[in-house]
Amino acid sequence: MPGITREEVAHLARLARLELKPEELDHFAGQLDDIIGAVARVSEVADQDVPPTSHPLPLTNVMRADEVRPSLTPEQALSGAPAQEQQRFKVPQILGEE
């Protein structure tokens, strides 16, 4: 398996929204490389014709009836908010698409 570069770590950090410090990039690059190197063994089975198991239980069709249940009060909903305004969560400017 290929070694994990500092750039790759930086890319992962952006995807994961972690503002890593430069020294962390190097540190994680080394550690992730070690860990990936060790766990990459799983790909030994990649070619085997085995169905994946994403869940330990073979349950299906667990659903609930379309019935309204009590919501939180807005006070409860906003109780943990770092900032609020007009009964809404106040967040910094969103650099998004319009």
């Binding site: 766990v39 790909s43 990649a46």
Partner: peptide, 19 residues
Amino acid sequence: LSSGYYDAYYGSAQKVRTL
């Protein structure tokens, strides 16, 4: 989970789970 690695890693790990 990232594209290009999913099958080799996450996908294989789920197969191991079956085994």
